[in-house]
């Protein structure tokens, strides 16, 4: 049985990150995009926790908890904006959300 080293964690986290980045870049539905951002954040969390374990202290874990809270706040704010937006435009397609370019 191969022991689970930090490298393993990093590989999983990198995979998660790449999945999330692909999701953010390719999906049109804002809800999916927000979920993909969660994936990226969780990939980072996993890294922090992995390095925390490697170094044998709790700094990284505390960071991770902060990030989880931050993610919750971000999801709340993001979904709130999305619902307000949907009421006006009746769409959640990210390609059509382009008013700010002007």
């Amino acid at each position: 049985m191969v022991p689970i080293t930090t490298l393993h964690y990093l590989v999983v986290a990198a995979a998660l990150f790449v999945l999330g980045a692909i999701g953010v870049l390719t999906r049109r539905n804002v809800v999916i995009v927000l979920m993909s951002i969660e994936l990226i954040l969780n990939a980072v969390n996993l890294n922090l926790v992995a390095f925390s374990r490697m170094w044998g202290n709790l700094h990284g874990q505390i960071f991770a908890i902060f990030i989880v809270v931050d993610a919750a706040a971000e999801a709340a704010a993001g979904l709130g904006i999305l619902i307000a937006f949907f009421r006006n435009k009746e769409t959640v397609n990210i390609d059509e959300i382009d008013l700010l370019k002007w």
């Binding site: 870049l25 990210i94 390609d95 959300i97 382009d98 008013l99 370019k101």
Partner: peptide, 14 residues
């Protein structure tokens, strides 16, 4: 560079 597609900006950033 400013054509309004969020994902394009994200792609450039990535």
């Amino acid at each position: 560079f400013e054509w309004g597609l969020v994902q394009w900006y994200a792609l450039v950033m990535v």
